[in-house]
Design a protein around this nucleic acid. Structure first.
Lengths: 199, 199, 199, 199
DNA sequence: CATTAAACGAGACGGTACGTCTCGTCTTTGC
DNA sequence: GCAAAGACGAGACGTACCGTCTCGTTTAATG
């Protein structure tokens, strides 16, 4: 890796630290996660961590984005609900695994502007952006009502997932995502409301 | 207070500690919140804190529920959307003020079963319960479709609020709540879907 | 001990720290002596050391003066040489045991004004003072020549002991002290010079 | 320098390191002297120091013997006291300048056998040897009493200088050396004892 | 009332971890 | 192939808090 050589950085060490950080955060939680413990488990010196990462939050975020296989990319098959099921189902799976890290980062961001910035730039914003693009396409081609408040809709799509996983500490699976989308969006193409008053 | 006297407990001290905990958590965040700092600011001995609260999470939760003026109580005027605006608007206001504490408690609960239990019992569950009751009443009297998945609807109602406030770190006001509800529920009584396909 | 109670200080802990400091300094030397190692061996927290002693030098000096059985007190039997043999023999014995600590303190004092001050006040000066008093008495009552430079004589009495023990790293016993005094002072009472030219 | 080339060694770097070591030791003391600081000031890599010197003590000793203009050589004009004044006055001047380094080396030698060996071989022993030779010559030609214990006399000559400079941290000048010698040796050639009893 | 038992502010204690500095080794790059 | 530069694992620095444990003092309740 040219980048590693540029900075004379040991890639093995970097990987070991990122892995140790993720594992430990899952085991003990963000609040109890200790830099010393990460160094210990990674077989690294503390200085090596402090040299390359400014805080445990940023280290964790790096670990998350480096190691994560999930992507912000949104499919566009022309079928909005199917595309949303695909993307949000995948997101739900990833989030379930990473819940302890994710909630830690969110908490950390509330009093660390640097972490807040990076969390937004590297995790939140790209996903919103991809979703916004797909939803706007749906609006443009008439899949969604022209008056749709896209930003609000994004909140309504993802909010329940975050809420259920992080606050209610409940499970998140694809079936839930399907039910959620079915209730929120018109199924099939019919103009069925998410919630309808009885006739 | 009979309860206080029973345990020979100093009420002034208790109040000072709860206040200091809330203030400090807002200032430095949950992760950096220190028992010693709380004791210092409250002019209390550390032992007094350790005597009455098992962890900083439980202390904060106590501070939150003791000091909070908001209530889980749901009005039932017969107009579901109006009632939801009333209750969720109030909730949104409270949550905005308490976001740094709330996110800390949620994070803490992810690795502290005791805190998880209490957070659920004292904060989350009562509010869900009250909401569930109101929604079920709406279903029963035909305000909502009989097939409504009430639990899912609760997630869809509150999820975006949590998501926006805690994860996206955005503002939360009554206007947002109104727009959210208008999109999610049929406005006015008409069977307008939350999201409609164009004709 | 009233003093200990006054400051709520744990006397056991204090003793364990002083002992550990002396032992470790003897084992590894002043330069390699670590506060952490002292705490470890004494079964004490580091803060307990930092709370009560400002530096490892002062800690060692405290250990030396607390634990040392030797005294600056000079006997005065009327026989100067005999009194010097008594006192300096005792001093030589003590110094032999404490050489590694003593040289460390002397080295430390060269760049730590606080330690220099205390080392002088608690170790060097009292001994010089006691010796000066005894020598002045000898001058006053005619045991020594009235023109004797007492300060210089003190240097000449103790200098070789320090030199031999610390710089030349040689042994120091009472026989050496006797030969030293015999050569420096007139033996028996005759006016034999310390070093005489041949006739 | 042939020697330098032999080992492909950079003489500039060597000089810069020795100079930096001496200066820094004078500034912060032996205990606080850091290899890293020497490298930094000398503009050298740390490895260059570790490659050529086994310890900071040996490096300092090298610096001392390389840079020092003083010599162990003893003059022999036939006048013992004059020769001693010459040599010891010079020694006193040098020692005054180098006291912080000297005391550091002596301290270091107490727990570093390698340094002890070298310090003796390169600094202490040559000077004692030269002094011994001169004193023995004085004994042989009747300048000193045949029964003189030469080794003891060396201790008595140099001991007070070390004691005064290092332990008592007092000044050392030629006047002191003269007084010291005058009291220890018979002045002029007269058999005046160093210390005499009154008649 | 005086006694007494618990809670209180204070803070020392043995510890763990902080973020920084230095150790001595190792690797990379330039001369 | 040495030298400068500097990353690395290791671990000590001096400080901040952890949660526990006395200290005396204050405060209620009981006898």
């Amino acid at each position: 890796m040219a980048w590693a050589n540029q900075y004379r950085r040991n890639e093995d060490s970097r990987q070991a630290i990122l892995t140790a950080a993720l594992d430990l955060c899952r085991e003990v939680g963000y609040d109890a996660l200790r830099i010393e413990a990460i160094a210990r488990r990674a077989g690294a010196g503390k200085q090596t961590i402090y040299r390359w990462w400014p805080s445990k939050g940023v280290l964790l975020l790096d670990a998350l984005t480096t190691g994560s296989s999930d992507s912000a990319a949104f499919p566009d098959t022309g079928d909005l609900e199917a595309d949303l099921v695909t993307q949000m189902g995948s997101a739900a799976r990833n989030m379930s695994t990473l819940a302890p890290i994710l909630i830690g980062l969110i908490e950390g961001a509330h009093h660390d502007p640097d972490l807040a910035e990076r969390l937004s730039a590297e995790l939140i914003t790209p996903r919103r952006e991809a979703c916004r693009t797909r939803l706007q396409a749906a609006v443009d081609r008439g899949e969604l009502d022209p008056g749709t408040d896209v930003e609000l809709l994004i909140d309504q799509l993802y909010g329940p997932l975050y809420y259920r996983l992080l606050a209610a500490r409940d499970t998140l699976d694809e079936a839930y995502v399907r039910r959620h989308l079915a209730a929120l969006l018109p199924a099939g193409g019919r103009a069925t409301p998410a919630v309808s008053t009885s006739p």
